[in-house]
């Protein structure tokens, strides 16, 4: 989305800080219902990121499916358990947690050095110059629909079969 520069930077900083704090809250809240709501905050800010990245259709799908369905289902699963077993889950800093923390920090640091070292702008200019500069008269959502019904027709049907099988399996497991 083409916003003027300071508004864009302000929005990126705001959404990024919400995302970082929310994902820390998913881990660190004692009560699981709070961490489910902070997961909702993370999902909403990711959807706004998608709007900033010119992907309105994916933003709408993220908002509908993740926030509207998955997060509500997770909150339902939290409310389904009894609340007494949450308090004793925490403050158990074992050796495995330390090892996992080291491994995750090293993954993050190595990814970050790779991202910083790569010269992205050279790749951008080489790929942009190869693309055909056609004027796109149709919007992104129409283009996604055209691709889904032509090039990606078989994966689309397969994904619907997977969803159907997963829903039937979930019902038959939960019903017992």
């Amino acid at each position: 989305m083409d916003l003027p520069g300071p508004i864009h930077d302000f929005l990126v900083v705001l959404l990024g800080s919400g995302l970082i704090l929310g994902s820390m809250g998913v881990l660190l809240f004692n009560n699981s219902i709070y961490s489910a709501f902070s997961l909702g905050l993370v999902l909403v800010s990711i959807s706004l990121f998608y709007i900033l990245a010119n992907a309105q259709f994916v933003a709408a799908a993220q908002l509908l499916i993740y926030v509207g369905a998955i997060n509500v289902l997770i909150i339902f699963a939290v409310m389904f358990m009894k609340g007494s077993e949450y308090s004793k889950d925490f403050n158990l800093w074992t050796v495995g947690n330390g090892v996992t923390f080291l491994v995750c920090t090293s993954i993050f640091v190595s990814l970050m050095t790779t991202i910083v070292d790569t010269s992205w702008y050279g790749i951008i200019w080489t790929t942009r110059s190869n693309q055909i500069l056609e004027q796109d008269l149709i919007s992104n959502s129409q283009q996604i629909g055209i691709y889904l019904s032509t090039y990606f027709f078989l994966p689309f049907e397969l994904i619907s079969i997977i969803l159907l099988a997963a829903l039937i399996g979930a019902i038959s497991v939960a019903r017992q």
């Binding site: 992907a55 994916v58 369905a69 997770i74 691709y147 889904l148 994966p155 997977i162 979930a170």
Partner: peptide
């Protein structure tokens, strides 16, 4: 974008199976 829509659909299936 299309691939991320597929990933969202797989995540929906996973979130139905998990609970």
């Amino acid at each position: 974008n299309i691939f991320s829509i597929f990933v969202i659909a797989i995540a929906a299936a996973e979130a139905a199976i998990g609970p």
